[in-house]
C-alpha cells in the first residue's frame, strides 16, 4: 500500500502541469473578469465552495457577479411577497432578471423537495425554496426564478455539472408533474448555467478548464493550437470526431442562440428536445443568488407548447439543480404543480 500511495503522489506531481489552473475549479482565461475592484472578492467558481456565509441581504448596490458575467447595476429589484404564485399583468415584460419591472410583480416562495421518486434520486436537498415571479403583458409570459447558490457553476467536466432550473406546464389537464405520462404529456423549458455561459463568453473549450492541455493536431481542423471550438472546426470532415455535434445532439450546439431549451416528456426517461422553440431565457448570478428569467409567447401555433390564456388559470411546476453539489438529471429539487391564476 505504501508503494501505491507513493505512486499516487508521483502521479499528482506528474500531472500538476496538466492540472495547473485547477482541474476542479478554474475559469476560462478568456472570460471577462468582473470589474477590477471586485476581482478579489469574486468567488472563483472552481474552488471548493466557501463555508456558508450570512445572507448579504442589505448589501450595497455593487454586488459580486458570476466570474464570467457583468455585475448588474443596482441591487435586486425588490418586490412584495405574495402567499400564492400568480401571473400578474404589467405594461411590458422583458428577459432582464434585474429589470425594474420586476418590482411590480409580487413573488411567492415555492418549497422544493429532493426528487426521490425515480432513479437516480437526490438523497439530500440543498435548496429549500425557489423565489418565483410571473407576469405577462398581453403577448409575452415571463417567469423569474431566483434561488440562493453560493457558487455559480457554469462549466462541465467529468464530475462537474452546471447549475440549472426548469419550469413545466401540463399539455393536457391532469398531466402528472413527475415528467408527465403517456397520455398526458408535459412541456418543460430548461435553462442551464453552461448554456448561459455559452451565450455570455462562448462555447466552453478544453483549454478553458484544462489550460495546459496540448494536442499537436485534430484531424482536418484549420489554424493552429489551441484549435478553438468552433472556429477551427469549420470543415465538415473535422466534425467526425465531435460525434454528438455531428449527430445533432442538443447538448452539443457549438453556436447556441439561447440558453433555453424546450422539451416535452411523457414519463420518466422520455425527455425529448423540441427542434422548434419559442422560449428564451436569461440568467444572472449575483451576490450569492441566481436569477433566471424565462420568456415565451402566451400563445403559439406549436402543438407541443402549453397555451396560456389571460384570465384562465394554468399550472406550473419547477425543478432546480445545484451543479456544484453533483446535481444533474433526476438528482434535482422539484416542486409540484402550482395552480396559478393568470391576470386578465
Amino acid at each position: 500500500m505504501r508503494t501505491m500511495r507513493t505512486l499516487t503522489v508521483l502521479a499528482l506531481a506528474a500531472v500538476s502541469t496538466w492540472a495547473a489552473g485547477g482541474c476542479k475549479k478554474s475559469e476560462p482565461a478568456s472570460a471577462p473578469a468582473a470589474k477590477a475592484g471586485e476581482a478579489a472578492s469574486t468567488p472563483i467558481a472552481l474552488l471548493p465552495p466557501p463555508a456558508p456565509v450570512a445572507e448579504p441581504a442589505a448589501s450595497p448596490p455593487t454586488v459580486p457577479s458570476a466570474p464570467w458575467q457583468k455585475a448588474p447595476e443596482g441591487g435586486e429589484p425588490a418586490a412584495a411577497k405574495a402567499d400564492k404564485l400568480k401571473i400578474a399583468k404589467i405594461a411590458a415584460v422583458g428577459e432582464d432578471p434585474y429589470g425594474a419591472f420586476w418590482k411590480d410583480v409580487p413573488y411567492a416562495d415555492i418549497a422544493l423537495l429532493p426528487q426521490q421518486m425515480a432513479m437516480p434520486l437526490l438523497a439530500d436537498g440543498t435548496i429549500p425554496t425557489l423565489q418565483v415571479q410571473a407576469a405577462h403583458d398581453g403577448t409575452t409570459l415571463a417567469v423569474r426564478c431566483a434561488w440562493k447558490d453560493e457558487t455559480p457553476d457554469g462549466n462541465v467536466d467529468t464530475g462537474r455539472f452546471p447549475d440549472a432550473v426548469a419550469i413545466e406546464f401540463p399539455l393536457k389537464p391532469g398531466a402528472p408533474p413527475t415528467m408527465g405520462s403517456k397520455d398526458a404529456p408535459v412541456q418543460i423549458i430548461h435553462w442551464k448555467a453552461i448554456w448561459q455561459k455559452d451565450i455570455d463568453v462562448g462555447y466552453q473549450d478544453v483549454q478553458d478548464i484544462h489550460p495546459n492541455f496540448w494536442s499537436d493536431l485534430y484531424w482536418f481542423t484549420e489554424g493552429g493550437y489551441p484549435y478553438k471550438v468552433p472556429d477551427a472546426f469549420k470543415k465538415p470532415e473535422s466534425l467526425q470526431w465531435l460525434v454528438a455535434v455531428a449527430a445533432g445532439n442538443p447538448m452539443a450546439v457549438l453556436q447556441r442562440t439561447t440558453p433555453a431549451e424546450e422539451l416535452i416528456a411523457t414519463g420518466w426517461g422520455t425527455l425529448t428536445h423540441q427542434p422548434t422553440s419559442a422560449s428564451k431565457a436569461r440568467g444572472l448570478w449575483a451576490a450569492g443568488k441566481w436569477a433566471v428569467v424565462f420568456t415565451r409567447p402566451l400563445k403559439t401555433d406549436d402543438a407541443s407548447d402549453a397555451q396560456i390564456e389571460a384570465g384562465k388559470p394554468t399550472q406550473i411546476a419547477f425543478a432546480v439543480w445545484d451543479g456544484g453539489k453533483g446535481q444533474i438529471g433526476g438528482r434535482k429539487h422539484w416542486a409540484t404543480w402550482q395552480d396559478v391564476e393568470v391576470a386578465p
Binding site: V15, W18, C23, M119, P120, L121, G159
Partner: peptide
Amino acid sequence: LDPPRGWRPEAADYAAPNL
C-alpha cells in the same frame, strides 16, 4: 431507486494513463 453501485472518477484521474 439506486443505480448499480459505482463511483465517479475526477478529471485528474484520467491524466496519467500509463502511471
